[in-house]
Design a protein around this nucleic acid. Structure first.
Lengths: 137, 137
DNA sequence: CGCCCCTATATGCTAATAACATATAGATGC
DNA sequence: GCATCTATATGTTATTAGCATATAGGGGCG
């Protein structure tokens, strides 16, 4: 059952402490990343306040691995970002058409994006090391 | 409903052709990547034939983003790789303890790993571009 | 022996995520 | 009226992630 531990001090019952990975208090966590919609939205909103419908097309044009996210995911993430205080929103009546909910970034949002960026740098480092290992020999 | 298409020639009913993303015929696809267990196992098995229990600890030591995969995921992926003809397996009776199923790589497996490596290079490129954009200004 | 631990492989199950479908609504063109 | 575009949002299903458990050979030890 136990993982073939190199140095397993005292193989208790588990392979690893349950879910530090999914710890909701750990922002910019490892493991599944919700398609990295959070950092992309934070980047776009920091650059310039925007709203869901527009962010949808803006996010499509960003350089980023993987398929572009669907609109429900974008809208839900925007509400989640606001709930966390990373962005704020204000309704702006539409000149022609329905009202827009304009999002702008908060200081906390800037801080979170900085965390993401350093996490990405680490990812790139690790990936590069793996690539090199695959190519040598 | 439609995505705010820049150049939408003729906005039909969908945001995007349904699931080229999850197309099971598309190896090294975009979208969820099953924790990239496949390329890591292919790399390790190519380096030297090995078996599940040992691969578990070997995979932990590889440079790679994210948490190390759990053993059920490793065993399942090994059987899947064999089913796809990317590796082959032979039982080796254990000198002391249970028998091991030894995996070795096939030419197809080497080819698949090469695909992964070029996909990773592209990922790194995109991530680097995103990082730079976040840092300028 | 009976029990625990390590090696070794494998299946089962639940929670979280991804992907897609649908709902609502203001405005414009025909 | 009806289709279409803008705009936001909820609902539902399929897939993935993470963890628990099952099975089994062998060694050490009281």
């Amino acid at each position: 059952m136990a993982r073939p531990s190199e140095s397993a001090g005292k193989g208790t019952k588990r392979a690893r402490a349950p879910s530090e990975i999914l710890d909701p208090a750990c922002f910019v966590r490892e493991g599944p990343q919700k398609r990295f919609i959070e950092p992309r939205l934070l980047y776009l909103i920091r650059k310039e306040p925007s709203y869901g419908y527009q962010l949808m097309s803006q996010i499509d044009k960003l350089p980023f691995p993987g398929p572009p996210p669907d609109s429900p995911a974008v809208y839900r993430m925007l509400r989640e970002l606001e709930r966390q205080g990373l962005v704020r929103s204000d309704w702006q009546p539409g000149e022609a058409g329905p009202s827009k909910r304009i999002y702008s970034i908060t200081p906390q949002g800037r801080g979170r994006l900085a965390l993401w960026v350093s996490a990405f740098k680490e990812r790139v480092n690790l990936l590069n090391r793996f690539i090199v290992m695959c190519e040598e020999k």
